[in-house]
Simulated scan of single mutants.
Amino acid sequence: MPLRVVQFGLGPIGRACARLVQSRPALDLVGALDLEAVGRDVGEVLGGEPVGVLVRDDAEAALAAWRPDVVLHTTSSFLDRIEGQIMTCVAAGAHVVSSAEELVWPFERDAGFSERVDAAARRAGVAVVGTGVNPGFVMDLLPVVLSSACARVERVDVWRSVDAGRRRGPLQRKVGAGLSAEAFREREAAGGFGHIGMVESARVLAAGLGWGGVEIEETFGPHVSDADHETEHVTVRAGSVAGIHQTATVRQGGAVRATLTLTMAVGAPDEDRVLIAGDPGLDVVVRGGTFGDTATVAALVNAVPRVAAVRPGLRTVLDLPAAAVGGRSRSVRFGACSR
């Protein structure tokens, strides 16, 4: 029997998730929740033929009617904005796979939230997990997986460079592309700006490598363009902000154990690199990078058949078993490919 899936949130990522679910024989898209597309046929919202199911915004009643096995949740990055949504899904007896970056490792950021969600999920016999490509794969899970070939790991350095000009409009605006340096700093001071999830990636990496008692420092600033760029969504002039440059440094006992460096800017090269100092050392480069929009959607949908395999409660990507595209359980893939 296919797993019954509800899509919660129909922004660009949510719609892409729902379309990928529709393409999977092992999954059955039975409903969608959203505030903007209420009353429209889900199939038409996704750009296809009508499927006879309307988008709803009454989550509690809709979930009771649809009876999903798993809810794909793609509404917000922040814990304080999603708790009620997650709790409603859990109360309906559904596992939850979410794109919320802060949910990838929520324990230090909000212990109260983590305790409440974990307790509710345990009572309901379901699992809740946050995942994606970054955080959730490139700068955390991938280095942890690579370290399995090392007898000793002394230090890990990860670099991710992303051409934001190839990404969706909301992300280009989120990294400040096209702003002046002054406007960038004003937005930064207001909070909720830039890439969310660097600290979460650092926490996952440290936990996956068994490093306890770590301290994490995050730095953040504008990436200024040296050339003009035009995208479908923004105009970037030379000397203005093209995006962000962000780092997270992991220290243990005063020594630097890991650095995570992210450049996400219009016109930046696309490349991911993991450098492990150890025995043996590893230097792995993903040429062309891991395309974030497609890989995020794949990571979410590929987690659907796996989330039911972990113990009930609030879980992380470190708990999910390896899985192949389409959810075949005996695979060594790690869930960032859509096909």
Score class of each variant (00 low, 15 high):
69 D>H: 15
326 G>V: 00
245 H>P: 01
278 G>W: 00
321 P>D: 10
324 A>G: 15
105 W>C: 06
85 Q>L: 13
174 K>Y: 04
152 R>H: 15
119 A>R: 14
320 L>V: 10
275 L>F: 07
216 I>E: 04
243 G>W: 02
244 I>C: 05
38 V>F: 08
90 V>W: 00
70 V>R: 03
277 A>H: 15
5 V>C: 03
289 G>F: 02
225 S>N: 06
50 P>N: 12
251 R>I: 04
31 G>Q: 01
332 V>F: 14
54 L>R: 13
311 R>T: 14
133 V>S: 04
152 R>M: 12
181 A>E: 15
313 G>K: 04
178 G>P: 07
184 F>Y: 14
98 S>A: 15
202 A>T: 04
218 E>P: 06
36 E>P: 00
269 P>C: 06
307 V>F: 05
127 A>Y: 08
86 I>C: 03
187 R>V: 02
312 P>T: 13
104 V>W: 01
186 E>Q: 14
14 G>C: 07
310 V>I: 15
256 V>G: 07
170 P>G: 03
296 T>Q: 04
330 R>C: 03
29 L>A: 08
40 R>F: 04
313 G>H: 02
305 P>G: 12
52 G>L: 05
273 R>C: 14
152 R>C: 08
52 G>E: 09
129 V>E: 07
111 A>E: 15
268 A>E: 06
278 G>T: 08
178 G>Y: 00
12 P>A: 14
49 E>V: 13
185 R>Q: 14
239 G>A: 07
95 H>G: 00
315 R>A: 12
208 G>L: 04
33 L>Y: 04
67 R>F: 09
104 V>N: 10
224 V>T: 12
306 R>P: 01
58 D>H: 09
290 T>K: 00
290 T>H: 11
29 L>N: 05
291 F>T: 07
298 A>G: 11
260 L>P: 05
180 S>D: 15
307 V>G: 06
311 R>Q: 14
136 G>V: 03
87 M>T: 09
251 R>M: 09
70 V>N: 09
136 G>A: 04
196 I>D: 08
25 P>I: 02
230 E>F: 02
259 T>L: 04
97 V>Y: 02
107 F>A: 07
43 G>I: 06
123 R>L: 13
95 H>Q: 12
227 A>D: 12
222 P>T: 08
23 S>C: 01
207 A>M: 12
266 V>G: 01
106 P>N: 10
253 G>N: 08
175 V>M: 08
97 V>S: 09
270 D>E: 15
338 S>Q: 14
214 V>L: 03
19 R>N: 14
98 S>R: 01
7 Q>D: 06
89 C>T: 01
279 D>W: 12
276 I>P: 03
245 H>D: 10
32 A>P: 05
222 P>Y: 04
274 V>Y: 00
294 T>N: 08
325 V>L: 13
65 A>I: 08
171 L>Q: 05
32 A>V: 00
259 T>M: 13
13 I>N: 01
83 E>T: 05
96 V>L: 05
208 G>I: 04
87 M>C: 12
131 T>L: 11
258 A>F: 03
264 M>F: 09
28 D>R: 12
84 G>E: 15
